[in-house]
Computed example of a mutant assay.
Amino acid sequence: MLPWFMMYDHTNYARWGPVYQADLKASEYAAPEVFKEFIEGHFAVRLKENAFNGVPVDKLLSE
């Protein structure tokens, strides 16, 4: 994905994309509990206890 940011002249994404990627790679050691939960697929928000109502955190609109 990072080469596409450069190619399409998205300067801010091209600048901060590698930093974000390095943070994600370091999360295994910096926050092992959070990393474990992400690996297990617990990265969705559920407002109600139903089977198929999980929403990714970045798409959540608070009530």
Rank of each mutant, 00 (worst) to 15 (best):
M1K: 06
M1Q: 05
P3K: 05
W4H: 10
W4R: 14
F5R: 04
F5D: 03
M6L: 10
M7P: 00
Y8K: 08
D9W: 02
D9L: 09
D9R: 10
H10S: 07
T11Q: 13
N12P: 02
N12C: 08
Y13C: 13
Y13N: 12
Y13I: 07
A14F: 09
R15E: 10
R15A: 12
G17S: 09
G17N: 11
G17Q: 08
G17E: 04
P18V: 03
V19F: 08
V19S: 04
V19Y: 07
V19K: 09
V19T: 15
Y20D: 05
A22N: 11
A22R: 13
D23I: 09
D23M: 13
L24P: 03
L24D: 06
L24C: 15
L24M: 14
K25T: 13
K25L: 15
A26N: 14
A26Y: 04
A26M: 11
S27W: 04
S27K: 03
S27Q: 08
E28W: 01
Y29D: 12
A31K: 09
A31P: 00
A31R: 06
A31C: 04
P32L: 07
P32Y: 05
P32W: 06
P32K: 10
E33G: 12
V34E: 02
V34R: 09
V34Q: 07
F35Q: 02
K36E: 05
E37C: 05
F38T: 05
F38R: 11
F38S: 03
E40S: 10
G41M: 06
G41Q: 07
G41H: 10
G41P: 03
H42Q: 13
H42W: 12
F43K: 05
F43D: 04
R46W: 01
L47W: 03
L47V: 08
K48P: 00
K48H: 02
K48G: 00
K48W: 01
E49V: 06
N50Q: 09
N50L: 11
N50H: 10
A51N: 12
A51C: 07
A51R: 14
A51V: 10
A51L: 11
F52A: 10
N53M: 02
N53D: 13
V55E: 02
V55N: 00
V55K: 04
P56M: 01
P56H: 02
P56G: 00
D58W: 15
L60M: 08
L60G: 00
L60Q: 06
L60V: 15
L61I: 13
L61Q: 09
L61E: 03
S62K: 11
E63N: 15
